[in-house]
Write a protein that binds this DNA or RNA. Sequence first.
DNA 1: GCGTCAGTCATACGTTCGTATGATATGATA
DNA 2: TATCATATCATACGAACGTATGACTGACGC
Lengths: 205, 205
Amino acid sequence: MTDATTTRDRILAVATDLFTRRGYDAVSIRDIVAAANVNLGAVTYHFGSKQALYHAAIESITEPFARRVAALAAAPGTPLDRIEAIVRGALAHLLDNPGPPIVLLRELSNDRPLPPPLAALMRRNLGVVSAIIAEGQRDGTIRQGDPALLAVTVMSQPFFIRAARRVVSVALGVDPGAADQQTRITEHVIESVRRSIAYTPRVVS
Amino acid sequence: MTDATTTRDRILAVATDLFTRRGYDAVSIRDIVAAANVNLGAVTYHFGSKQALYHAAIESITEPFARRVAALAAAPGTPLDRIEAIVRGALAHLLDNPGPPIVLLRELSNDRPLPPPLAALMRRNLGVVSAIIAEGQRDGTIRQGDPALLAVTVMSQPFFIRAARRVVSVALGVDPGAADQQTRITEHVIESVRRSIAYTPRVVS
DNA sequence: GCGTCAGTCATACGTTCGTATGATATGATA
DNA sequence: TATCATATCATACGAACGTATGACTGACGC
């Protein structure tokens, strides 16, 4: 079962899974090579070090996500619609691939420098979203405010909802992984995001 | 300088700081006792184990935060005003005490069971907020929707903004620790939260 | 004065860690 | 067939880990 790919690929796949679920420090090279059924020396040989493997794992997680967001941002539509499409797409992606939010939040919560692939992901996504927001502000469909801060508010929702799945689970008292729950959560997030950034003549006093 | 308190208290203070900044696995008992200027055996003696010390550290972080939120929730005012006061108070607290969001997000991002004091914090805060939201829904000032999900949306904002300080810093291109930035960020969060939960006759199409 | 006992201390135990080393196997090229 | 780079393998190394142990210290009640 583990022999379908090359040693290098198997290591990367296993490492991505373990690092995501447990974090860098809680995963040893020996854990990885055991799960991948390869020799202890293979990680050093193929990646150079544990840290280099970690960065490669992050890269393999963040790249598809950033590509998807970029594609949605480039689609036609009004700024608000494109934001909604991005949030919807991001949430869908993250519900299937919990890697990015989990790793990002974990890395944001310690003092070590942000791994380069993660910093790149942030810059790409926030840049894309805040450009759309600025566009919406110019045509009057999005409320005033710092586009960068608004972008953080927008993108934080899918990230937080997914990373804090266990919070949501406690809050709802049900399993948030069920399909109908996912739909409910998605619609809730979309509605909240739209409300928090759309232009409205007046907010209820 | 480190002799002002008892050995036990010094260990707890140092451990809280280190665990918060680096995470459980990245901090060794030897790190802690060195920083606290106490003997290696002191942690085992006073707390029993590294894990027990970790839980004590979490407790010391979350307790004041939960107390503050509970106090704000019990103050008089309309539901929306109390929500705003809670968000404002939570943000102020978290800007000075980054412990709770950092540790919470880190713990949410791995497979291990949530440490009991953290689970308790979540339940207390989300319970308090969703009760206020339900009250606001009954008197028509807060929009319809699952109170628990709305509570997550509300409380996620101060947590995320604080935990993702480095995201905000990248997004804004400035140091978010500066006082004027903090004010800007606070007002932004308040506005976003109010918009996302307040009842409005109609959202802009 | 003298046990008693909570607290502190140096040190040791067994384990696991990341990485290094050198031998062996494999497969394409000549 | 001989050569040679690539890959895999079993081990070894020194360091750091959490925890255990037993000796020492000093204040207190008797």
